[in-house]
Amino acid sequence: MLNKLQLADRALLKPGWPAPENIVAYTSTRKGGYSSVPFDSLNLGQHVFDDPSVVAKNRSLLPNYENYVWLKQTHSTKCVNLADMNNTDSDQVEADASYTSLKQRVCAVMTADCLPILVCDKQATKVAAIHAGWRGLADGVIENTISKLQLDTKNIMAWIGPAISQAHFEVGQEVKDTFSDYPQAFKPNIETSDNKYFVDMYLIAKQKLSALGIQNIYGGDRCTYAESDLFFSHRRATHQGLEAGFAQVTTGRMVSAIYIKQS
Rank of each mutant, 00 (worst) to 15 (best):
K4M: 09
V119S: 10
E170P: 08
L137S: 11
S60Y: 11
F232I: 09
V80W: 08
G245Y: 05
W134S: 12
Q262V: 08
E174V: 13
P63A: 12
P183I: 13
V69Q: 05
S263W: 04
K78I: 15
G245N: 09
A244L: 12
K72N: 14
T100G: 10
V199I: 15
L102R: 13
S228W: 01
S101Q: 06
C107R: 03
I130G: 10
E21Q: 14
I164K: 11
N87G: 11
L149P: 11
E143K: 02
C120H: 08
N58L: 04
A185I: 04
A108Q: 05
A167P: 00
A8G: 04
Y26G: 08
C114W: 01
Y202C: 09
L82T: 04
M201D: 00
D181P: 12
Y65W: 12
N43W: 00
P183G: 03
D51G: 07
G219K: 10
L44E: 00
W70Y: 15
K14T: 14
M110Q: 13
V55N: 07
Y26L: 12
A11Q: 04
R59E: 13
H234A: 10
T250P: 00
L151D: 00
D194V: 04
K154Y: 03
A257S: 11
L102A: 15
T29G: 02
G16H: 06
S165D: 07
A97H: 08
D200Y: 08
D50S: 09
Q6A: 10
T74L: 04
S90D: 03
K196L: 12
G161F: 06
K4Y: 01
Y259C: 15
Y68P: 02
A138T: 12
D51W: 07
H75Y: 11
G220N: 09
G33M: 03
S36Y: 05
T145Q: 03
V55T: 14
N43M: 01
W134H: 15
L7Y: 04
H239C: 03
S35I: 03
P15R: 11
Y259M: 03
T250L: 13
P183D: 07
A112W: 08
G133R: 02
A226V: 12
L209N: 15
A158W: 10
T125H: 00
S228G: 05
S233V: 09
V119Y: 10
L5D: 06
T100S: 15
N216K: 14
G161Q: 06
F179E: 06
A257E: 02
